[in-house]
């Protein structure tokens, strides 16, 4: 029983929920207040993109779907929408290791920025698909650009956090 409990506590997915909760706390407070050019930084999108870039499409997609589901609970959009978008974002970011074999920190950051921009564009499109029209405007490209730049800057900080969070085991 105790071994199972320890396994559960030390599993990457439990760590993911805990770390994502803290990040979401920052998302709904600090990043909600700081809006350069009127655009909010999207740390949850950044986390999903980092997960994809560091651990590949499959683990990234699962991580994206889980943190997206958590993010959905604080958004006003239909429950499950952010989950799909973040899952797709991580999956797209997961294509990066297939293209770049010996990646450096800066080309990972660029991949995260590109995936973040794609994820940010996907969000209003997904909203339109479920009938919440009106958000597909030219503005989404400005939003995607600003989010990409912010995430380009934040990616080198968050990639080690994501690497630790989604590490298969903390021992060894």
């Amino acid at each position: 029983m105790s071994i199972r409990f320890i396994r559960f506590i030390s599993s990457r997915w439990t760590r993911l929920v805990l770390v994502a909760s803290v990040l979401m706390g920052f998302q709904t407070t600090l990043f909600n207040d700081m809006r350069p050019f009127g655009v909010m930084a999207q740390v949850m999108v950044l986390f999903a993109a980092c997960a994809g870039v560091v651990y590949g499409a499959e683990i990234g997609a699962v991580a994206g779907l889980i943190i997206g589901l958590m993010y959905d609970c604080v958004l006003t959009t239909p429950l499950g929408l952010a989950s799909l978008v973040l899952g797709a974002t991580a999956f797209i970011a997961g294509a990066f290791p297939y293209f770049v074999r010996d990646s450096t920190w800066w080309n990972k950051a660029i991949a995260v920025a590109v995936a973040s921009a794609v994820g940010e564009i996907l969000f209003p499109i997904a909203q339109a698909l479920v009938g919440l029209g009106g958000w597909v405007q030219w503005r989404i490209f400005v939003v995607a650009l600003v989010v990409a730049i912010i995430n380009l800057i934040l990616a080198p900080i968050l990639i080690p956090v994501v690497r630790w969070t989604l590490k298969e085991t903390l021992v060894g």
Binding site: L65, L69, P78, L79, G80, L81, S83, G87
Partner: peptide, 15 residues
């Protein structure tokens, strides 16, 4: 992935 995606779609429908 399939299970989580399906869950999301069901949740969207319910919401």
């Amino acid at each position: 992935i399939a299970l989580l995606s399906l869950t999301s779609i069901i949740l969207i429908t319910l919401d």
